[in-house]
Design a binder for these strands. Structure first.
Lengths: 60, 60
DNA sequence: CCTGAATAAAAATTCAAA
DNA sequence: TTTGAATTTTTATTCAGG
């Protein structure tokens, strides 16, 4: 379900250093949520996530 | 020169809606500053620019 | 309306080279 | 140390389909 996946995404990036949507997909999978990069791209947009620049390029 | 190009980048994005590094390259060229996407990518990192998400995806 | 697979588009990086 | 050209990687979008 979309809402819970997006909530989980926010949870993940608040706890871990995530630099790509693929990494996010992997973390979701560990939590038994299956989502492709395409879906995460759409989620990122809806959640207004941004990739910080500078050394690491993490999602926030 | 790097410093003035980066200053110009900040100036451009404060005035115009810029969504891609190619657009930025074009705007620079209009101002007689030649820089490829690769260079702008590096500048973006140094300047800590971010792409906002949501409808437009502008640089800030 | 939501999603995945495939693809396109954009951004980051590598590899000379100045 | 900075850059461009080429390439790789990442992200956005298109195009079905559920």
């Amino acid at each position: 379900m979309k809402i819970s996946r997006q909530a989980m995404i926010l949870d993940i990036i608040s706890e871990k250093d995530i630099a790509t949507q693929e990494e996010l997909s992997e973390e979701l999978r560990k939590r038994n949520i299956k989502a492709t990069q395409a879906t995460i791209s759409r989620d990122s947009k809806e959640l207004h996530l941004i990739k910080t620049q500078g050394e690491n390029g993490l999602y926030r």
